[in-house]
Write a protein that binds this DNA or RNA. Structure first.
Lengths: 227, 227
DNA sequence: GCAAAAGTGTTGTACGTACACCCATGG
DNA sequence: CCATGGGTGTACGTACAACACTTTTGC
């Protein structure tokens, strides 16, 4: 059996979130061949016999978009009997968080085009992909309140207002500046950068970065991230 | 193709939690045939071509244990290359909450025996089942703090101390009686029963039941269960 | 000086925590 | 009358929400 023999009954699909222009956005690809040719859909593909599920998701993501080394986590399996038109295919959905500025999108072999869409202005998508996307949105909104995964959507360094805008978009609410700042600072998860903003038409803000090490330490001592 | 043709590359496994003797317990079956014959493992089976994933999970659970109409939810797919000895098989794990008192365990065709085990005294289990069990435990402990799913582990009617004992076991902590009562009562999710406890060697406690309708109403208005 | 965003301070309320206490019942 | 669990009350601190306010910078 070849190393790249595929399992024809199980596929991978990736829901990739990004944050641009104070908006939550989603990465879709236009399929270049196969049944879905010419339509927008989630980046996806087949699993090799020789690789685990997570490995397959990373590989497919890289092949289709050029994105690598990001936050990627399994969302679950979707297996309605008629979800795929040609035959019975079960798909394992993954959900990823990216800072779009870090990546030049490079559509791969099977993707004619790759593009970001604001989450509330998506085009029609293939198969049961809108069902998967909705599950991913819900998962993200839940998870972001209990774990500091939101930082994966931001650049390495960011201002406090950046985070606030991010959380306002994710939680779809308005937050009080003063209260938000105190809350996030009290958690002691951020480290001050040497730098401040530059080239802004107003007072330059302090830059911060998220320290994963600190977070892991806190977590071991029973710390719980909230909001 | 027969209605009951199976998909040979994808299986279902169920992690079933129950609460007995103030302890979180897990239901395992002793496999009666197949590769795992004679060993304890999660109740599991193959998916029919003609049924969805959730349907398969319900069916398999009923076939192997007699349990039906319970809280059942997908946990995720497990697909390490070598997780199953004979060939590449991906399994979709489900996670269920049961009140053990409601069910007489009825081992089915392929299960020689079905039995509850305290969560910290499990026997050795097949394949990657201990990995799946750990994921399920973690999922339960997270979820139980944000959604009132714990009630699925209790009888229809219960005392406030029953819930407290349940949460103490789930969260592995001690809770203050007075504070816990106020907190849970303030949520207005419980309705007083007509009855009180009987046959207890001390003052009889008020019985309550969880009202799912009330919960759904609250949730629509942005209510969030916490503890 | 104006606009725009950075950043600080104040105050009332609501909730969590800790702990003390009384009540009812069976043995 | 005592052990056991049921059930209530109070006092204190702290976190959160709402809102007002000052500071820095570019145009």
């Amino acid at each position: 059996m070849s190393d790249h023999a595929i399992i024809g009954t199980v596929s991978i699909d990736c829901v990739i979130f990004g944050f641009r222009d104070d908006q939550l956005q989603l990465l879709l690809v236009k399929h270049a061949d196969g049944i879905g040719k010419g339509n927008w859909g989630l980046p996806g593909g087949w699993i090799w016999e020789s690789e685990g599920l997570d490995d397959a998701a990373y590989r497919i993501l890289k092949e289709l978009t050029g994105i690598r080394e990001i936050f990627l986590e399994q969302l679950g399996a979707f297996g309605d009997v008629d979800r795929y038109p040609a035959r019975r295919v079960i798909t394992v959905a993954y959900f990823a968080l990216v800072n779009p500025q870090e990546y030049e999108l490079i559509p791969g072999f099977t993707a004619a085009e790759a593009s970001w869409f604001p989450i509330d202005q998506l085009p029609g998508v293939l198969y049961d992909h809108s069902k998967i996307i909705n599950a991913a949105k819900e998962h993200l909104r839940q998870k972001v309140r209990h774990e500091p995964i939101g930082f994966n959507l931001l650049p390495e360094e960011f201002t406090l207002l950046d985070i606030q805008k991010l959380y306002e978009a994710l939680l779809q609410t308005q937050l009080d500046k003063s209260n938000f700042r105190r809350k996030i600072k009290r958690m002691n998860l951020l480290v001050k950068s040497e730098k401040k903003q530059s080239d802004v038409p107003h007072r330059a803000a302090q830059l911060y970065s998220f320290d994963r090490t600190i977070y892991e330490n806190h977590r071991k001592n029973g710390f719980s991230f909230m909001l």
